[in-house]
Design a protein around this nucleic acid. Structure first.
Length: 787
DNA sequence: GTAGGGTTAG
């Protein structure tokens, strides 16, 4: 036996890297020449054990270019996702030694890097240079063509060529061609029926022996992808032996289209027919359970999988784990989700994104933040989830910051990311930023996006421009119930109760079904506008006409409506008729109504209940002490304040802000921080002088401390909303609307004062507080003092 | 030395 054969036999037995290294070392140190065959074996070995740099080192040692080695290397680079190095290597391969196999490998490499056009070009080039395509070539190039999938003619051209070369008799080519038709069929640019029919014809006309498992699967999955579940099911039922992959495709098709019962049904049949369930089956079924809200079924599957199919490593496959994370986050079991996530030996982007969006949806924004920071890789979705999560939880500044950071890192935000950024502007009331984003959105062509439109409606509304919100709503190409809800809410918050109701009626006429949010909104609208009769009517229709069971939030809005109208006995009746014990939202609504109507007795009762339920909520202590102060019961005021101190409850400081020239200026109560605050105080003094001439009297009822009346007046003059409004008058161009935002509810004296100010300086003043908007113009407020 | 079928996240 010669040394070549011997070396080759040794190497054929190689299974261990260290042994390969030993052979390699021997070749290097002993004088024996690096025979190409042995070197190639070694390169192959190192590539397979993912030591590509080592393989390359050997490759570069070969004195004469070798096409087999080059192809091995090329494929290794491609498998590792490094198309650049693969292409470089291919280009460096001398034309004289290239062969069909090397072209095939390069075409596949392009295809795997999702560059269908490059693959197709190379195919054309190789034919021009006289290389003869083989079945491998066709399979590869058809795979690449599936990526382009924008024209019917491409498939047909290649179909002709395949036919010409007689390659249709090769199952892999037949399958690749069918798969190509199927992929092209899902493109919106083609007539998918024609292409599906072509794929089906290929399938039907192939002799049964040529229709192997991939063939069945391709055609069945093809129908699934192209939304013909009936055809897919028919074929599935017609199969003599049951191929798990095809069944899995069918199940996932049902799940995608929302036919969860059918999906579970198939699962049961698979099980009873003895078809091997695998990780794909479980992944689909678990995700069916989470989409359908059937959490118990999902957990049963989890338990079953735990009992039966533990992997050798003791863990599930990645995709099963990912589906489980989603299942548990959707049913609010974040601890369970976290347990699955933490135990995973390997996590991918999907796992991270799933747990991140789980935390965001559970409003655990700090946990989400640390997950976001920990993530090894982030996708567009990651950023989007985080940005909109921050905005939804009131962190507008952080949301915008993250959006900018995303762009700095060179990522192109998608429409969802823009929607998140706009939502951040809604929180901040930053109209300048919001408008800039809006113009970028138009430039980028994202303005037809539903989520962007919905975010814009809310942004314009929350920045005080309810007309602009309306324009967006009217010009959106498609709207959904979220858009309607947003627009109704916009009208409601700005005090246009009647218009809000009209819009709601219009929504019903257009056959859009109201949901639980719609009713929350419409009840608020009635409450803000004092429309008691209407509010009660809508509340009643909820269950009767739309089958929506009123929740505590709905009841609290109804009670709010009644109490604001002074109908306390009716409110009491509602409370007693509720199918559950009144919780904090109910007592809050009662308390607010009592304060407006001076119903101190009931108000104090409500506040006492609230103190029991939510002892850490500062607002209750303030309201309670306000009520005692109004009654002149200073001992009680002192008692409440002492209680607050003892329990370590801090009053959330009043804070208002205004945007001037793209900068947000923040004022705190009794502010001494803002650089221009002294000028603001001086100007306010002048204004008050003018206002008094028109009849303004400071209303010291709104000061809780027991102090002299002069001090009380001073205390009123330091309210943050006054400072912000005055700053706006000083800084904004003449005639410009003043838009001020406050974290708490507006104070009664400030409300009164702004009416006078709007008259004195002849300006429109818009104040957004925690609950709604106040438009002051010419001595009046849009809320008609009803808030 | 090269090729064809399925699953998960807003």
């Amino acid at each position: 036996m010669d040394i070549w054969t011997m070396g080759n036999r040794y190497l054929a037995q190689l299974s261990h890297t260290s042994f390969a290294r030993a052979v390699h070392a021997h070749i290097l140190t002993s004088g024996f020449k690096p025979f190409p065959l042995i070197i190639n074996r070694l390169i192959d070995h190192y590539c397979k054990s993912f030591n590509i740099p080592y393989a390359r080192y050997l490759f570069d040692k070969i004195p004469k270019p070798d096409i087999v080695a080059a192809t091995t290397m090329l494929s290794a680079y491609s498998a590792a996702g490094n198309i650049k190095l693969a292409h470089q290597l291919f280009n460096a391969t001398p034309m004289s030694i290239r062969d069909t196999v090397s072209y095939n490998a390069m075409i596949t490499a392009f295809s795997h890097s999702h560059d269908g056009h490059a693959a197709l070009q190379l195919f054309v080039q190789m034919k021009r240079l006289g290389f003869v395509p083989d079945p491998f070539t066709f399979s590869s190039v058809l795979g690449a063509l599936s990526l382009i999938a924008d024209e019917e003619t491409h498939c047909q051209q290649l179909h002709c060529e395949v036919f010409k070369w007689g390659a249709l008799s090769v199952p892999s080519v037949l399958n690749a061609l069918m798969s190509c038709y199927v992929s092209c069929a899902s493109s919106p640019l083609v007539n998918s029926c024609v292409l599906m029919a072509a794929a089906r014809k290929l399938f039907d006309e192939a002799p049964p022996g040529r229709r192997d498992e991939p063939a069945w699967t391709t055609i069945i999955a093809g129908y699934v992808r192209n939304d013909d579940l009936v055809a897919a099911r028919e074929l599935l039922e017609g199969m003599t032996d049951h191929i798990a992959v095809a069944w899995n495709a069918m199940i996932s098709g049902y799940v995608h289209r929302g036919f969860y019962e059918e999906a579970f049904d198939l699962l049961r049949r698979m099980h009873s027919l003895g078809i091997q369930l695998d990780e794909y089956t479980y992944t689909s079924v678990i995700s069916a359970a989470s989409n359908a809200g059937l959490f118990n079924i999902g957990r049963q599957v989890h338990a079953y999988v735990l009992r039966t199919v533990v992997q050798p490593s003791g863990h599930f496959v990645l995709s099963v784990n990912n589906a489980l994370i989603t299942l548990y986050t959707r049913c609010g079991k974040l601890v369970e989700a976290r347990r699955v996530f933490d135990k995973m030996p390997v996590k991918d982007l999907v796992s991270w994104n799933a747990i991140l969006s789980g935390c965001v949806n559970a409003r655990r924004i700090e946990e989400a933040n640390s997950i976001f920071r920990e993530m090894p890789v982030r996708s567009l979705l990651t950023w989007t989830v985080m940005i909109s999560g921050l905005a939804q939880n009131g962190f507008g500044e952080e949301g915008l910051k993250l959006f900018n950071q995303m762009k700095l890192e060179g990522l192109e935000p998608c429409d969802y990311a823009y929607a998140g950024a706009i939502a951040s502007c809604s929180v901040l009331g930053s109209l300048d930023n919001g408008q800039q984003l809006h113009s970028q959105i138009i430039q980028l062509g994202h303005d037809s996006s539903l989520s962007v439109g919905n975010a814009l409606i809310t942004m314009y509304s929350r920045c005080g421009l309810v007309e602009a919100a309306d324009t967006v709503f009217l010009t959106m190409p498609y709207v959904d119930s979220v858009s309607w809800n947003a627009m109704i809410a916009a009208l409601a918050q700005h005090g246009h109760g009647v218009q809000a109701i009209q819009l709601y009626e219009k929504m019903l006429k257009e056959d859009i079904l109201p949901d639980r949010i719609t009713f929350l909104t419409i009840l608020s609208a009635c409450s803000h506008a004092g429309l008691v009769k209407e509010g009660r009517h809508y509340f009643d229709t909820m269950r009767v006409c739309y089958g929506i069971t009123p929740e505590e939030d709905h009841y609290s809005r109804l009670i709010d409506l009644l109490c604001r109208a002074g109908m306390f006995s009716e409110a009491k009746n509602v409370t007693e008729s509720m199918p559950f014990e009144p919780g904090a939202p109910i007592w809050e609504a009662l308390l607010a109504g009592c304060w407006i109507h001076g119903n101190m007795e009931l108000g104090i009762q409500a506040a006492d209940r609230l103190l029991e339920l939510m002892p850490q909520q500062d607002g209750t202590y303030i309201s309670l002490s306000n009520m005692y102060a109004a009654l002149g019961q200073w001992d009680e005021v002192a008692r409440v304040r002492k209680l607050m101190r003892e329990r370590g409850v801090k009053k959330e400081p009043g804070c208002s802000w205004i945007e001037v020239e793209n900068m947000v200026h923040v004022f705190l109560v009794d502010d001494a921080v803002h650089p221009e605050v002294h000028a603001v105080y001086r100007y306010l003094e002048q204004l008050v002088h003018e206002m008094r001439k028109l009849g303004y009297v400071p209303d010291t009822k709104f000061v809780l401390h027991d102090m002299e009346s002069e001090q009380k007046e001073y205390a009123l003059s330091t309210h943050s909303e006054k400072l912000a409004v005055v700053y706006g008058i000083m800084k904004l161009p003449l005639g410009a609307t003043i838009r001020v935002f406050k974290n708490l509810r507006i104070c009664g004296d400030c409300h009164n004062a702004f009416k006078y100010i709007s008259k004195v300086v002849d300006r429109e003043i818009i104040v957004r507080d925690r609950k709604r908007f106040h438009h002051f113009r010419n001595g009046e407020c849009s809320c008609s003092n009803y808030w």
